[in-house]
Amino acid sequence: MELIMKQMPIVFNALNVGFLHTLQLFFITLIGALPLGLLIALGTMSRFKLLSLFNRIVIWIVRGSPLMIQLLIIYYFPGLVLHNPIWGGGETGRFWAASVAFIINYACYFAEIYRGGIQSIPNGQTEAGLVLGMTHRQIFFHVKLLQMIKAIVPPISNEIITLVKDTSLSRIIALQEIIWAGQSFLKGSQGISGAVWPLFFTAIYYLVWNGIMTVALGRLEKRLSYFK
């Protein structure tokens, strides 16, 4: 116990730094993947058969293969095959490579949710808008968008909760997120080695953050419950 008390300041400092990386990756992924997913979804529903086919293939590849492999490919492929290590070896490069992999991966999952959301809105809504002299743009923004958001909030919430935990996969390209930080004390770091508790303690960080996310997303869902 005394030993743990002595280790605590060092460990928490390292875990906080690691969790900061986790959160950065989390937010960057959302900022990138939420809009990109919409573009991909619109692409799959496009009248241009080639674009639609291309987007469907991308979704199939990205959702059908492990994110861990995607991380490895995106980070190592440029240097390994093209002889141009665009990301560099530093922490920043690793972070951006991980961000790109996560954004693409999650955008494809979001795309399928968006598509479901868009298609869940009856055609009658569009027709009602058209006969009232509204443009397709107005119909999208003033009629369909909010209904679509309401339809996708629950499935998107699920993905967001999963994303928080998935960020730990980025350690495969040595992005030093919180689990890496926790495990370093097991391997030996900053004079502490063989300490198991920091690794297990990382779970508390995830739990707290996912608690906050669950409450926030639940509120959003509730705010949209005024219509059916």
Binding site: Y76, G89, G90, G93, I173, A174
Partner: peptide
């Protein structure tokens, strides 16, 4: 010199991928 922590299992990948020297 930049010292960068890697996943030891991936050391050959890192070298050949030129992410480390």
């Amino acid at each position: 010199v930049e010292l960068i922590e890697i996943d030891w299992d991936n050391k050959v990948l890192e070298l050949n991928g030129k992410t480390i020297d």
